[in-house]
């Protein structure tokens, strides 16, 4: 049988992949995609806990799913702003590689 731990392990691996993408990749678009992977890994564990906590009325605890709804909305807004910043940056510097953007680097 599938336990809660199985979903949590899948979520942990997905989060780590996104984290590794943010740490290792140098392309800003791929970094934004890795951020999405991390947010979705968190969503998976939220939904798993929501299904795990069945209330007295025999329904899942929907608070977790409402939270996932908010996370998806914020993530969509974040992607829109992030990509607009990326386009503005590309206009100014003609690059999406984070190693070429070093004006603020100490």
């Amino acid at each position: 049988m599938i336990t809660l731990g199985d979903y949590l392990v899948v979520s942990a691996i997905l989060f780590t992949m996104g984290f590794a993408g943010v740490m290792l990749r140098r392309n800003l678009i791929v970094i934004l995609m890795s951020l999405e992977l991390m947010l979705n890994a968190a969503n998976l564990s939220l939904v798993a806990f929501s299904r795990f906590r069945v209330g007295a009325n025999g329904l899942p605890n929907y608070n977790g799913q409402v939270f996932v709804f908010f996370v998806i909305t914020v993530a969509a807004a974040e992607v829109a702003v992030g990509l607009a910043l990326l386009v503005a940056l590309y206009r100014a510097r003609q690059t999406t590689n984070v190693e070429d953007i070093r004006s603020l680097k100490f």
Binding site: I2, T3, L4, G5, V54, P60
Partner: peptide, 14 residues
Amino acid sequence: IVHFQAAKQTFPPL
């Protein structure tokens, strides 16, 4: 996750 006791349980039926 390994030390989390509830992680070893299956999902209760609806």
